[in-house]
Computed example of a mutant assay.
Amino acid sequence: MPSARSTNLKKITTHQLQEMKNRGEKIAMLTAYDYSMAKILDGSGIDVILVGDSASNVMAGNDTTLPITLDQMIYHATSVVRAVVRALVIVDIPFGSYQGNSTEALRSAIRIMKESGGHGVKMEGGSEIKESIVRVLSAGVPVMGHLGLTPQSIFKFGTYTVRAREEAEAQKLIEDAKLLEETGCFAIVLEKIPAKLAKKVAEAVSIPIIGIGAGPDVDGQVLVVHDMLGITKEFQPRFLRRYADLDSVMTSAVENYIDDVKKNDFPTQEESY
């Protein structure tokens, strides 16, 4: 089967994502943090690549997304952008680089855009960060919102359980989604909320809604690529579907390599100069 790189090189833009929602075409989004992975995803035809602050977990081994810095996010984003021909590349602004200070938010967003070449940024929160979103948008930087379970606020929540089960929180989430649309966000990620609520949000706003643990009735889906490929095994939420078991494949390959080296079966004469 030919890759998307050879059959469809039309660049994905925020405008095209809106058109996809309008015609009912689902949006496929995955994370990437390095050149090699991004090249595979882009060549496979992924619509959006998120350079997520989840790099703090899967690349650096941290328990939360909080420790990753702006400089580190720019490093990962730069590596991803170098590989991409077609996909829209969105970069998380990390914790502490935009909350409560719109000037800092603008500075962070501009650095990401100028230094990495990314196509937009993602920010977690609703009315609490409206001023920062407005400031970033005023510079012409596309902003993707993020509501529901917002990992940068994990110590406030105290748990990774499903959000917005209670009526008051559900109503605030709908109001925040409408606010983000009115403010100018081009899309919103909804993380780990009831599927019925996610459907209400997708119907209440005209911009694309991308779900992760938010059911099927939204405009697209996003997963962390290491989870989806089975590279990580500790993380096993209900919403995760593993499309491969690369942990086992890679472990087997490394064990075979070690065995061949120990037995002096590698390299052979044909593999030598």
Rank of each mutant, 00 (worst) to 15 (best):
G118H: 01
G118M: 05
G120Q: 14
V121Q: 10
K122H: 08
M123Q: 10
M123D: 13
M123Y: 05
E124N: 00
E124D: 02
E124R: 01
G126T: 06
E128D: 14
K130R: 13
E131A: 15
I133F: 03
V134Y: 08
S138C: 01
V141F: 01
P142L: 09
G145D: 13
H146S: 05
L147Q: 03
G148M: 06
T150S: 06
T150L: 00
T150Y: 02
T150Q: 13
P151A: 12
P151R: 03
Q152I: 05
Q152Y: 04
S153K: 13
S153I: 06
F155N: 15
F155H: 15
F155W: 14
F155I: 12
F157P: 08
V162K: 12
V162T: 15
R163Q: 15
A164V: 10
E166G: 12
E167T: 11
A168H: 11
A168I: 09
Q171E: 15
K172S: 15
L173D: 00
I174C: 10
I174R: 01
E175V: 00
A177C: 09
K178G: 14
K178T: 08
K178Q: 15
L179K: 05
L180I: 09
L180S: 14
L180K: 09
E181P: 02
C185W: 04
F186M: 10
A187S: 09
I188Y: 04
I188A: 00
L190M: 06
E191M: 04
